[in-house]
Nucleic acid binder design. Sequence first.
DNA 1: AGTTGTCCGACAGCTTTTCGACAGCTCCCA
DNA 2: TGGGAGCTGTCGAAAAGCTGTCGGACAACT
Lengths: 229, 229
Amino acid sequence: MEKVRLLVVDDDPPIADLVATVARYEGWDAVTANSGEEALRLAGEFDPDIVVLDLMLPDLDGFGVLDRLRHNGTMVPVVFLTARDGIADRVAGLTRGGDDYLVKPFAVEELMARLRTVLRRSAGPAFQRSVLRVADLTMDEDTREVRRADRLLTLTPTEYEVLRFLMRKSPTVMTKAQILDHVWEYGFGGRSNVVELVVSRLRRKLDDTGEPLIQTVRGFGYVIRQAAE
Amino acid sequence: MEKVRLLVVDDDPPIADLVATVARYEGWDAVTANSGEEALRLAGEFDPDIVVLDLMLPDLDGFGVLDRLRHNGTMVPVVFLTARDGIADRVAGLTRGGDDYLVKPFAVEELMARLRTVLRRSAGPAFQRSVLRVADLTMDEDTREVRRADRLLTLTPTEYEVLRFLMRKSPTVMTKAQILDHVWEYGFGGRSNVVELVVSRLRRKLDDTGEPLIQTVRGFGYVIRQAAE
DNA sequence: AGTTGTCCGACAGCTTTTCGACAGCTCCCA
DNA sequence: TGGGAGCTGTCGAAAAGCTGTCGGACAACT
């Protein structure tokens, strides 16, 4: 696939920057806009494949931006960001077309996952499943089914996210800080051992059968990969 | 790649110089700033590819500098330096993207390694693995896998760092002092034979099979290279 | 043969990791 | 509205593994 072009619209520069940086890290092209006007201008110039759109903007609000976009005939898919309270209902109504939304504060991996899904859907009518695989472990990102050697595992949301992150990055070693930073909401204060704990719980479920897949790289972090040699 | 342009921002001149010197030694272009204002000015003039930014600055603090940088539309990647205590949490929020941070006191080689990683990532969408190779010894810096003639070695963090340093410098001879200075945190007190010890341990793991790769240059230091006649 | 430099075994202290127990929370259902 | 089930994160203790000090054996150079 071509390099994905992402437009991020959020009036809070750190947030916009955060999203753009993560996207670039994934190899996407990303630009940011801090107002509705700027967003519309950039949508024209930059011609994005997908848009992340905060609903709370100083000038024109998110809905307004969307209307104008659609008015111009742009069918680009949109993922909305909203505060926890409030307009969730109205957003829900807008998400039928394949668009999606996420509540702030979000975890960056979750945002990226939704962007990928939306892109995949909008790419073509025949949307192919996204299945991650490491050794005899598979994760179907559509059905959320995780199997180890065909045995179905039941994971909690957090476990699922951590596992997905590790599988996506496999066979690269990730530090605990990286895992925490990507899988937990930004702003999560936990100076704690949550990551270790979730890994421990994952291991119990995964490695129940078969050889250990999640490996500790002492003094550094964790990887998921087939034990070499 | 072109000559990398690095901007180092730290109010403690010895530290800033240390980093700049090491970077120049690697063939990079490096400039230093000792205050936030200077940093912003230089960022404009010098147009760096990457920035090392101490968070504790006399005038504008590190976060302020970052905000202003971003505000100017600069998407340059940043690696932060922080003291051990305190703001690690706040930093975490900024690092989710792909930027990174390091706690003082750090080891110079570790800083350089992170800079290289961040650069590599921001360079292109398809980020190519970084694999060091000396004779039949290979080190994959992403997976942290080290192999001698395909046999997987298990190294401790210190061993890994020393070996990486030697491999990077190969076939140049490094003195024990250089190794100590680069691989251990600056300010490390050990007037000792740690380096010898780690090398000894490395040898046992590496040279188990095959001919010795790490050679002693008596009265000077160590090199890793294929034994030449 | 003396001197200087290197190697490395043993050990103690320390750091990192693992994981059981538990309490607060949310969500769901009656 | 109350109760229950399941999820998440905190704490702490025990285990595992890593690092540096010491010191004696050994090797290399003069």
